[in-house]
Design a protein around this nucleic acid. Structure first.
Lengths: 194, 194
DNA sequence: CACAATATGTCACCAAGTGACACTTGTCAA
DNA sequence: TTGACAAGTGTCACTTGGTGACATATTGTG
């Protein structure tokens, strides 16, 4: 065992690259920042960067994928008695801790993503990974009736859509309102379609 | 007026390029098809292609944007008495005519999009344009209360999410089931959240 | 210490776009 | 009809994201 030192360095470098990239992206813009710009100050080769990140966009969104497992566990931990839609909402709500941790950074990130088409697309792509994984988990706790998978998928997709809208609302208001209020209002809209 | 001959040719070439591209993409795959592959048989220069389409992905999804206006008009035409969510559902339902027109092609397209990450991202990007435009229209017919914009956005987003799931279900089942049934089931899941 | 596994750097290369400039071809007014 | 302007096109050079191959370190293990 003890795969310690190598992995530690690896993660350190990876997060350093990501940090540096986001820094530059928010400062000069995504398209205007070249890979060499990112890699130069860190004395790392371009090739190495692309061994850690599949694409330039992933420099921004790699952490999305790392969060997937956490979300899955969160959903699995929800009580069986809870309504499925509510379970997903609460699961997504758990992400707010990252917004609490560093609101300014979260705000900058979402604004950057919204301002750059390429990043917007990627973020949706990552979101669809969450959607798929969470739907898988949710399906397991649904009665085994025909259309179970579809029900699970729609439930997750709707909750995610509302989540995104809630976050967007918060972002568009420059982080002024309480993010939990934004989110709750978004979720309750979905509950209102008789 | 009478901007006839030039525009006609322009549109003709554009659709020809798109057709050729999709043909090759479905045949050899998106990444495996190069721009020169597309452009060669049509005796058109690479540069010209990129004057008609901003990106390689747009060769597949340009029609998405052209549909936006149609969707907007469709939503505006829905009766004021209808529940907002239902209006959006019906609006999206109107897209089915394109699936009816050529189911095989529609199936091939959605499968292609699902199989290619780059295309998946782009399709979400385009979907978000629909979302924004439709939300704008919907907001106008909602009571002018605080949170109106958020309500409109969530309503549209939820309907779109369900729509996508319904189409996905149909696609995953290889177009066997009735697409309208898939869609209706997806929509009714959203209606079922207490 | 020696050996295998990994991470890294270098270099050459491909493909997606872009900018600049010259050339052709519809369009329309006189 | 003609002549001038606008719009579309081709060519070419160039930038940039991304990959494959190979050599070189660096590190964990017996």
């Amino acid at each position: 065992m003890k795969e310690g030192l190598r992995e530690k360095r690896k993660r350190q470098l990876k997060s350093e690259l990501s940090r540096q990239a986001i820094q530059l992206f928010t400062q000069k813009g995504f398209e205007e920042t070249t890979i060499d710009d990112i890699v130069g100050p860190l004395a790392v080769s371009k090739r190495t960067l692309f061994r850690h990140f599949a694409t330039k966009e992933d420099l921004v969104f790699a952490w999305y994928e790392e969060l997937t497992d956490e979300l899955v566990r969160e959903l699995e931990a929800r009580p069986r008695t809870e309504a499925p839609f509510e379970s997903v909402c609460e699961t997504l709500r758990s992400l707010l801790k990252y917004y609490d941790e560093n609101p300014k950074w979260a705000l900058a990130m979402t604004r950057l993503a919204k301002a750059t088409p390429a990043l917007l697309g990627k973020s949706f792509e990552k979101r669809s990974i969450w959607e798929r994984e969470l739907a898988k988990v949710l399906a397991k706790r649904l009665p085994n009736a025909p259309g179970r998978d579809l029900t699970a998928r729609v439930t997750v997709a709707a909750a995610l859509a509302a989540f995104t809208c809630g976050i967007d609302e918060w972002t568009d208001s420059r982080g002024k309102p309480d993010i939990r209020v934004c989110l709750d209002r978004a979720f309750s809209v979905v509950r209102s379609f008789a």
